[in-house]
């Protein structure tokens, strides 16, 4: 239970937050932190647990966002159907990316994932009959759970909390299960894993497809929450980078890491946007400059992320305390 203490505190606080306040800004922040944390966790399944770093995950996010929006707008279908369709499409796309991951390594794979998302971006922004092209799709609001039209922020908070919890549990599963151990082997050394009887290639493809489907679900939720799908945002490389950024800041390959990263990054963005736009509207890009620098500094000096840094701090303290006890006796 102790290893999940951080998660229990985090999700617990989110769960009781509506009791403390009904401030829309505050609740919106929690929804977004949970949402981005969950989607970054989905990235983490491929990028962290399977070791397949992608900068094209916006492709899956966009598929999820568009599937629901398009089905609702054209045929009046429930976004839940769109959610399933988006996940199905993303699994197919994930299988393609997974296939690529077995042919390409390192930078080549990263480049291929970027190109893949770019193809979808261009398609979405040009296929006017289906996607309304570069103007994007306003998602019509229809009240009710079945239509994912939740009027209150509190309902959204609990929905995203459920989603976030699910993602957390998926990651924990990847730490303690047979599949998780085998995946760790593949990530550490694929040749050695194969010699130990692990179907490394298939496992990687499964992990990437899983990651894709979960990212897509996040895309659907996000689009329904925000109410608008813009191709240049949902398929953008900036978004793909954001998923990676949250995870790297928090701790790659850890279940809580993406959520910690999301807290910091989401909060930073909102805080800086609010304060800086008061000073001068031109300053809104400042948070992105900080992201960029943070990324450079983190990967170089704190590759374990916040989790690793905190962990090191605690062990260091524990050791210091131990030394102190020894000194006294």
């Amino acid at each position: 239970m102790r290893r999940h203490a951080g998660a229990i505190v985090l999700f617990g606080l989110a769960a009781v937050a509506p009791l403390a306040t009904r401030d829309a800004y505050f609740l919106d922040m929690i929804v977004l932190i949970l949402m981005w944390g969950a989607i970054s966790s989905a990235w983490n399944v491929a990028g962290g647990y399977a070791g397949q770093v992608s900068l094209g995950h916006a492709a899956f996010f966009g598929l999820g966002a568009y599937s629901a929006a398009v089905l609702t707008v054209h045929w009046g279908l429930s976004p839940w159907i769109g959610l399933v369709l988006g996940m199905a499409l993303s699994i197919v796309a994930g299988l393609i990316i997974g296939y690529l991951s077995n042919r390409l390594r390192g930078p080549y794979f990263v480049l291929a994932t970027i190109a893949f998302a770019q193809v979808l971006l261009i398609t979405a922004s040009r296929w006017r009959e289906m996607t309304m092209g570069s103007e994007g799709i306003p998602v019509p609001f229809k009240q009710g759970f079945w239509a994912l039209g939740l009027a209150s922020k509190v309902s959204w908070l609990y929905l995203t909390l459920g989603f976030a919890l699910a993602l957390y549990l998926v990651q924990v599963y990847l730490e303690v299960s047979r599949m998780g151990y085998q995946l760790a082997g593949v990530r550490e050394d694929e040749d050695a894993a194969q010699a130990l009887g692990i179907a490394g290639r298939r496992l990687k493809v499964i992990a990437i497809a899983m990651s894709a489907a979960l990212t897509s679900a996040g895309g659907t939720f996000w689009a329904q929450y925000v109410g608008f799908v813009d191709p240049f945002y949902v398929f953008s490389i900036d978004l793909s980078i954001l998923f990676a950024l949250n995870t790297i800041i928090g701790g790659v390959g850890t279940a809580l890491g993406p959520f910690l990263g999301s807290i910091l990054i989401t909060w930073l963005e909102h805080y800086l946007r609010a304060t800086l736009s008061d000073i001068a509207p031109g300053l809104i890009g400042v948070h992105l400059i900080i992201y960029g620098c943070l990324l450079i500094v983190m990967v170089r000096f704190v590759p374990q992320g916040l989790i690793g840094a905190l962990g090191a701090l605690f062990t260091w303290r524990a050791r210091a305390a131990q030394r102190e006890r020894h000194a006294r006796t």
Binding site: V53, G106, I241, L288, I296
Partner: peptide
């Protein structure tokens, strides 16, 4: 200089970080 000998992933995210930073310096 600091990442010349680092892993691909570190190098990739270092230049990605540089890209984000420069782009937004220009924006600001």
């Amino acid at each position: 200089k600091g990442v010349i000998k680092a892993s691909h992933n570190v190098q990739i995210f270092t230049t990605v970080g540089l890209s984000i930073a420069l782009q937004n310096v220009a924006l600001v």
